[in-house]
Amino acid sequence: MADDASPGNQSDRFDRLPATATDRTVDGRPTRAELLAWWDERFGIEPGVFAEHTFWERGDGKIWVCRGDLETPVGIEALGMLAVRTRQEHWKPTLEAIQRFGDDATRNRIELATPEAAVFLAGADQELPWDGDWGYLIVTHEVAGEPEPLGVGLYVYDELRSMVPKGRRREL
């Protein structure tokens, strides 16, 4: 196990996630296996969806997803997209990752009517019924005849809290 003084997470470079815990050299770094299991358990997004993608950490608990296979580490500005924050107990996907990969989700997705989706997009919280687990949900609404993932909500105490980042909020 690496100690606190190890090179560990660095904010100026991307380190590829280890495949499994036995490959781990940086203490606390999530593994690819853990990440794939989390997508599957939380949202029903199967590991095959990410077969062509690699996962990388830059900074503490910021996990990026990249289509492709570069040599690790990579000292650049961005690599694919920021996909998941793993620093807290409950891992949180980004709006962008949900819009890109959330189509394949079968669990913990809540479909909103378009007026409710507009409230969510504006960044507001709203009381809504939900039978499932509390926690982060994929919020979808219908666009051009099919449900389409819009972003991430946090469901607690009968309320859907909008996790839409300020820069993505919009009044439609």
């Binding site: 990249c66 492709g68 990579v74 650049i76 997209m81 980004t94």
Partner: peptide
């Protein structure tokens, strides 16, 4: 970055440098 993420692009690697001296080092 905001545009690549908004559009769901995952096959992009972004470097901050002068194009005239672009380094292939991160992409060997």
């Amino acid at each position: 970055r905001s545009n690549t993420e908004r559009l769901g692009v995952t096959n992009v690697a972004v470097t901050a440098e002068d194009a005239r001296t672009h380094s292939l080092k991160p992409f060997p």
